[in-house]
């Protein structure tokens, strides 16, 4: 058994849709594959935790603010016992991804490593993602499909 959970963070605004749109594409490709679950969240703190079932692979997808040009992909793999090394970011009531993961590590069984896939965002002012971000949606979807064991349906 090789279970995977992919959590997409996002909102309906501009490039912040990245996480949701990647999951939308994945869900089309993953039809019938029960060993891969996806969860769409509209905030990055704790909302995914109560929907979590133990998995072998946990992946988060989100748009990120960075100094890189818009559309630049970012990838980070971190050991679950090193969550303290994640940066603290400003978030509602101080509960962001790092705080949510730290809490999750105490109350649910996380895999040994956690993967993060992001893309540098450009704008949040429309309901359409920028071309540079749209391109990365396609690329990341393909990459996740390639690295996820689609050949082993449950």
């Amino acid at each position: 058994m090789n279970n995977t959970l992919i959590v997409g963070f996002g909102s309906p605004y501009g490039d912040d849709q990245f996480g949701w749109l990647v999951l939308e594409q994945l869900n089309i490709a993953l039809q019938g594959r029960k060993n891969i679950r996806t969860i769409c969240c509209d905030r990055s703190g704790i909302d995914w935790i109560h929907q979590y079932q133990p998995v072998d692979r946990l992946i988060f997808v989100d748009a990120v603010k960075s100094d890189s040009p818009p559309g630049t992909p970012h990838h980070l793999t971190i050991k679950t016992d090193k969550l303290d090394s994640l940066p603290t970011t400003y978030s509602s009531h101080g509960i962001g991804l790092r705080e949510g993961l730290s809490l999750a590590a105490e109350v649910i069984e996380l895999p040994e490593t956690i993967e993060f896939y992001g893309v540098a965002l450009e704008q949040l002012d429309s309901t359409i993602a920028s071309p540079a971000i749209s391109k990365q949606i396609e690329l990341l979807t393909k990459q996740l499909l390639k690295t996820t064991p689609l050949c082993n349906p449950v």
């Binding site: 935790i49 809490l103 109350v107 649910i108």
Partner: peptide, 19 residues
Amino acid sequence: PAMARQFPAEVRRGLKLQG
């Protein structure tokens, strides 16, 4: 998180209610 280490079931219950 420090509290959750001692009270995991209670925190899980709280997260479920919040959800």
